[in-house]
């Protein structure tokens, strides 16, 4: 049976456009608001990534650190994250939702326990930033057994040999990190250059859904639209931070920003 994730990519392919993938942090700026945000932006986004916050994130830039910090300060717990997912999926059962975070949170919860909660709440996929291949091999297998997509990451430093192995071990979606950067960095190389690398990876296995993330904003997204999917995260976290600063409602602000992003890739 096709997963929600591969169905989403198939639908986008039919419309000849990339999948729009958003990233927001569970509990930013409150549990309720982060659920409302998911409900709103799911009108435009094809796949939703939801961060479960960690307080020592080694691969995230300032904006996502800020989001995680706001969420943790409000006391978000893992069980709240699953509640948010559950409520969202009840309303939007076909919309793919991917949890993203750091391994220690899973480790403390226990891998099996964590995956059970994923299944019960309807999580479609997982991105674990600090569990690279081949260390993730066993965990990825466990995910597959539970019909949860384990999403492998590739970066500009990944060798071709390594890419081949990772792609062979991948499920329905692979995430290509556009440049050497933490999340939210300014694009250091041109979209053209990114796409050149992207196409090289695509050639290894053209059937795999390969998405690009890191440094993508409303300014750069349209130049990358030949990819299978594009992830926007820090821009959204920044939008929340700014709207809070200005005393505006982050939910309506985010709704607008994601709507605009979608327009740019149609």
């Amino acid at each position: 049976m096709n997963s929600n994730i591969s169905l989403a990519f198939q639908a986008c392919r039919r419309e000849k456009r990339p999948a729009l993938i958003t990233y927001t942090v569970a509990g930013d700026n409150t549990k309720n608001n982060s659920l409302k945000i998911l409900n709103k932006i799911s009108k435009y986004a094809d796949i939703l990534e939801l961060g479960f916050p960690h307080n020592t994130p080694i691969a995230d830039g300032g904006q996502i650190q800020g989001s995680s910090h706001r969420a943790l300060k409000k006391g978000i717990k893992l069980k709240d994250v699953f509640q948010i997912v559950k409520k969202f999926k009840k309303k939007n059962p076909a919309k793919p939702l991917i949890l993203m975070g750091y391994y220690n949170v899973i480790y403390q919860s226990g891998e099996n326990n964590f995956l059970k909660d994923c299944s019960l709440s309807g999580v479609d996929g997982l991105i674990i930033v600090d569990l690279p291949y081949p260390e993730n091999h066993e965990f990825a297998k466990k995910c597959k057994k539970k019909s949860i997509n384990f999403i492998q990451l590739l970066s500009p430093t990944t060798s071709k040999e390594r890419m081949k192995k990772i792609i062979r071990d991948s499920h329905d979606m692979i995430y290509y990190i556009s440049m050497l950067s933490t999340t939210g960095g300014k694009l250091k190389i041109s979209p053209k250059e990114i796409l050149k690398n992207y196409n090289k990876i695509k050639r290894i296995n053209p059937k795999k859904n390969l998405v690009i993330g890191f440094g993508i904003t409303d300014k750069t997204i349209s130049a990358l639209k030949s990819a299978n999917g594009l992830v926007v995260g820090s821009l959204l976290c920044k939008t929340i931070a700014n709207s809070l600063k200005m005393g505006q409602n982050p939910v309506t602000k985010l709704d607008k920003v994601v709507y605009n992003l979608k327009k740019k890739i149609l």
């Binding site: 690279p132 260390e135 990451l153 430093t157 990944t158 060798s159």
Partner: peptide, 21 residues
């Protein structure tokens, strides 16, 4: 071989970008 001491300490829990360096 996984760089773990006593099977449970250490290892390399790092982002993909740092694997090669």
């Amino acid at each position: 071989k996984n760089f773990m001491y006593g099977g449970k300490f250490g290892g390399n829990f790092i982002p993909e970008t740092l694997k090669k360096p």
